[in-house]
């Protein structure tokens, strides 16, 4: 084992891991985070806490992770390079580790022009690959990114995102290989709707033997209805929603679409369980966290394994 991470233990034991996401509130309300934590606790192994997701200011990922950690969950600290330079990144990692948070996700981050502070300066001192490299250096060499020795160096289990659906497609596997070379341990993919394209991507990954080097958690997002599906298809960059998904939702009455969305997510998980290289699931129920337990249960992913 490289770390104390619960996620590492589950993945290394060969069991399918289940992670989910808790978006912190846009006000200083710890109860909102606790409520999400309570809801997810028994159903997921680890819980990502987003970091100013879509460039909207929210309670910081670190504080939210500490709250979840104190409730007995295993939080995953998401960290974007958009808002922090290498000093702030390392300071936050030290702080997180001091509270027993040992799993993180390194992200470049959505551009700030999407959020509620489009006039802000961005940072982008590092990109996600350089962040992975730095966190890995701290873990392996016990030194800061700048080279000085650390007294107690955090050993983070390092995650990153991958979007099999962005362009250029031929680069998507090569870029993942770069993340692996930088030291990433697990990958959470972008929401998968186009199963054919995802299958093709996984095949390429297995052909390169990369599935032996990294744990891939397939990104699952249930559609709340036709409106959301259309929005995801047309408005969200890097999202691939095929017509079959739209048509299937169109085929059911409006009040049944949410149920259909859940069913589709469950079916997807069942299908992906059989796919070589998929080592778990990352369920992103956007503003719909209360549905995660139902999805996990119906997909036959309960009970969650106990590890120490």
């Amino acid at each position: 084992m490289k770390t104390e991470s619960k996620l590492e233990k589950i993945l290394e034991s060969g069991q399918l891991a289940v992670t989910s996401e808790a978006g912190p509130p846009r006000g200083a309300e710890p109860e909102v985070i606790r409520k999400k934590g309570e809801m997810l606790k028994a159903y997921v192994d680890c819980c990502n806490v987003t970091d100013n997701q879509t460039a909207m200011v929210r309670v910081c990922s670190l504080a939210s992770c500490i709250i979840l950690k104190q409730m007995g969950l295993s939080p995953i600290l998401q960290m974007t390079a958009r808002d922090r330079n290498r000093l702030a990144i390392q300071a936050d990692i030290l702080g997180a580790y001091a509270f027993g948070i040992n799993t993180m996700l390194c992200l470049t981050g959505d551009h700030q022009s999407f959020g509620d502070h489009p006039t802000a300066a961005n940072v982008f001192d590092l990109d996600s690959i350089q962040m992975i490299q730095g966190v890995n250096k701290i873990r392996q060499e016990g030194t800061f990114m700048g080279g000085a020795k650390m007294t107690l160096a955090p050993k983070m289990f390092i995650g990153a995102a991958a979007n099999p659906f962005a362009d250029p497609f031929e680069l998507r596997v090569m870029r993942l290989a770069k993340k692996i070379a930088a030291g990433v341990d697990f990958i959470q993919t972008q929401c998968i709707f186009n199963m054919d394209k995802f299958g093709k991507w996984m095949q390429m990954i297995c052909d390169e033997g990369l599935d032996q080097k990294v744990h891939i958690l397939a990104g699952i997002t249930p559609m709340k209805g036709l409106g959301m599906a259309r929005y995801m298809k047309n408005k969200v960059p890097g999202m691939d929603v095929p017509d079959e998904v739209i048509n299937r939702l169109k085929g059911v009455p409006k009040e049944k679409q949410a149920d259909e969305g859940i069913t589709m997510a469950v079916e997807q998980i069942q299908q992906l369980k059989e796919m070589k290289g998929v080592h778990g699931f990352h369920i992103m129920a956007i503003e719909w966290e209360e549905k995660v337990p139902e999805i996990v249960e119906r997909a036959g992913l309960l009970p969650r394994p106990k590890v120490d």
Partner: peptide, 26 residues
């Protein structure tokens, strides 16, 4: 690159365009 990434492209690159604005080539 709108995020001055040295190891791009990010996950927002679509059809040759940058996620920030379709008028910006990635």
């Amino acid at each position: 690159c709108s995020k001055r990434m040295l190891n791009g492209p990010c996950g927002g690159s679509t059809g040759g365009h940058c996620e920030v604005n379709p008028d910006i080539p990635c």
